[in-house]
Design a protein around this nucleic acid. Structure first.
Lengths: 201, 201
DNA sequence: CGCAAAATGTTACCGCTGTAAACATCAAGT
DNA sequence: ACTTGATGTTTACAGCGGTAACATTTTGCG
């Protein structure tokens, strides 16, 4: 029985994050988590209201890390440099999704995990703002509304790509195509999203 | 105690499908399902190997229904008609996703439900073939590989759209944009996917 | 310092879940 | 008519999330 471990909350969160990425968030068990960390299973309730609350924290952590990966400072960049950075950020998005499949799945699952949670909403918005900033910088759009629409369009395209790549069986014949898409993400983005929108005026 | 109900399996599947769409597949309980149908909870095991097997059947049913919604017979259609039908099929896809959110989420969840299940793989392939056929009919592509790439691109774009529409909070300011996108799906598709690919030769 | 209060851990218990095993009954074929 | 397989029931069990009561440690205030 070890008491006074100040950093138990962080330790629980980190271990839970790892367990989720390993086995999928649906397989997470508070008792297994507690055993892994070396405390009784009810100790979790001193730091998280319930299991949903813990999953919300994991989800929020996911958006936090995703946001970090997307951050670009466009100030002082030429148009070409800005576009390069934008494409790089998109590639980072895809890479994050592929390297954190289970967490990514949790982040975009339709479960009620984190419903109406402010921290989560903030982190999600922060990540999305990276995209909006990039769109505003790289596309000549007539209105904020067009910018928002374009951002959603790009997000949907890249998110759909990640989702389908995550699903595909490596044994499939499409593997070569998948490899091509990842290695030529710029071309892919140009074909799916890098055109001037005609809607959302 | 009622015995020999020949159609119990179908009844279980239908009820389970409905319960999943109502409460989300994660909330499905075999005991609640059995009670709803009016049998003991272990009766389910006479027709499904376990809970995962039942969920696999629900998922397969989802792809079956999605496939039906996507089916288009392009034989004898003019180019314009074929394109109209193709866009309509895409709209049907989006509509299916929005009207069957929970089932759609299950269908594209990354859980191990139905992993390596042949029936499921077949139904999924059947649905995807509808898309491939439409792409082959409506795009002048140089190779089957290009056709496959284009199909994945369109799928990713539309799937991403559905996923994000399902997630978005109706109170958000983006609602008006969402409405626009749905009502003008043709324009959306043109901007995201209806261009000639330059890759995948 | 010393002691009360708050924070943080544990143990015991509850109801629910999926699943296996043993048993009962119905349906069908010889 | 009797056996056999399919189908449903009862019982039992281990694991889960969660609550309540209790123990210990840390903290803050006189």
């Amino acid at each position: 029985m070890v008491y006074h471990r100040k950093k138990l909350k962080a330790e629980l969160l980190n271990t839970a994050y790892r367990l989720c990425e390993t086995n999928g968030s649906e397989q997470l068990s508070l008792r297994v988590l507690a055993a892994e960390v070396g405390v009784s299973h009810t100790a979790v309730y001193r730091h998280f209201k319930n299991k949903n609350d813990l999953l919300t924290a994991i989800k929020t952590e996911g958006f936090d890390r995703l946001g970090s990966v997307l951050q670009v400072n466009y100030a002082g960049l030429t148009a070409t440099q800005a576009m390069d950075e934008f494409v790089l950020a998109a590639a980072n998005y895809v890479q994050f999704g592929l390297e954190n499949r289970q967490i990514y799945a949790l982040m975009f699952s339709q479960s009620d995990v984190g419903l109406n949670n402010k921290d989560l909403a903030d982190q999600r918005q922060r990540a999305f703002n990276c995209l909006i900033t990039g769109v505003a910088k790289n596309f000549e759009l007539d209105s904020p509304k067009q910018c928002l629409n374009k951002s959603y369009q790009i997000w949907a395209s890249v998110h759909g790509l990640v989702d389908i790549l995550c699903h595909h069986n490596p044994d499939d014949e499409i593997q070569s195509n998948v490899d091509w898409i990842i290695n030529n993400l710029t071309t892919y983005l140009v074909e799916t999203s890098f055109n001037k929108p005609t809607y959302g005026a």
